[in-house]
């Protein structure tokens, strides 16, 4: 008991001093808005980053569309990991991001999934032969994976009856509850599942799902985290979780005392 009390005291003191330190320049806090589909992968990356850096990364999970709207109304985040490229470019057009920070950090892959272990075959024939009643996909108007799913169906020339989830997570719920027999989801959702059956949809059947990031607040800690996110270590974590690395990873870390950088930053802020 005594030891537990001591540990508790130490922990409370640590929390307190951490709070105090946060208000000074010591260990920085970086707020990262992250797309729901990337949240679990981001958590692993953040845990790995915690071993390398004292900076505290706080993840704000939500849909990319909502984050984009909230950022325009002043959501205080330093980095935005979006689920697509459209929303980051919209923010870039509005002059809300640090110039030159927008880049692809991961490519999403689609998977055809069913909770029935025998329904989905290795070549996705089940889709073409329509051996199911309903296909669940994410809303193609708002979700990039839903948009890609529509491209797959039109490239295969099939028109199954469909149900739309608000996001890929809801599309998964539909298929997992049995409301729909089959679903076109993000590979990252089903790659770690030990149930059902899935088929990795060939990437040539849809245009690339480019998940892009932008830096919104020019602080060194934010740049450090983005630098790590695009490092070999983080990219291999992403690959384990069902993402493909972007074609070019030629991210060069822009130094804050770079000759050109400060001028750019100033013009962005003004």
């Amino acid at each position: 008991m005594g030891r537990i009390t001591t540990y508790t005291t130490i922990y409370l003191l640590a929390c307190l001093s951490a709070q105090l330190l946060c208000s000074t320049v010591f260990a920085a806090q970086v707020k990262v808005a992250v797309a729901s589909n990337f949240a679990s992968t981001a958590e692993v990356i953040v845990a790995t980053y915690a071993e390398l850096s004292d900076d505290k990364i706080v993840l704000l999970v939500g849909s990319t569309g909502k984050h984009t709207a909230q950022i325009q109304y002043g959501l205080p985040v330093d980095v935005f990991l979006a689920a697509d490229s459209a929303m980051p470019s919209l923010l870039e057009d509005k002059g809300l991001v640090i110039d030159g920070s927008r880049q692809t950090y991961a490519l999403g892959r689609l998977a055809l999934w069913s909770k029935d272990p025998l329904l989905v075959d290795a070549n996705g024939e089940v889709l073409k032969k329509s051996r199911f009643k309903r296909l669940a996909i994410a809303n193609p108007k708002t979700a990039p994976y839903g948009h890609a799913a529509i491209q797959v169906l039109s490239n295969l020339g099939i028109q199954p009856s469909m149900v739309y989830g608000e996001s890929v997570a809801q599309a998964f719920q539909f298929a997992n509850s049995g409301g729909a027999e089959i679903a076109l989801l993000a590979l990252s959702q089903v790659i770690d599942l030990q149930r059902g059956s899935y088929w990795l949809v060939p990437s040539k059947l849809h245009s690339p799902i480019e998940q892009q990031l932008v830096i919104l607040n020019d602080v060194q800690a934010a740049r450090d985290f983005v630098h790590f996110l695009l490092s070999e270590q983080a990219l291999s974590i992403m690959e384990l979780h069902g993402y493909t690395r972007p074609a070019t990873t030629s991210y060069t870390r822009p130094a804050l005392n770079d000759n050109t950088a400060p001028a750019q930053i100033e013009s962005t802020i003004k």
């Binding site: 729901s36 949240a39 679990s40 999970v61 939500g62 849909s63 996001s167 997570a169 998964f172 959702q189």
Partner: peptide, 8 residues
């Protein structure tokens, strides 16, 4: 909501 969205 976040837990459901991220399948936890």
């Amino acid at each position: 909501y976040e837990h459901v969205e991220s399948m936890q």
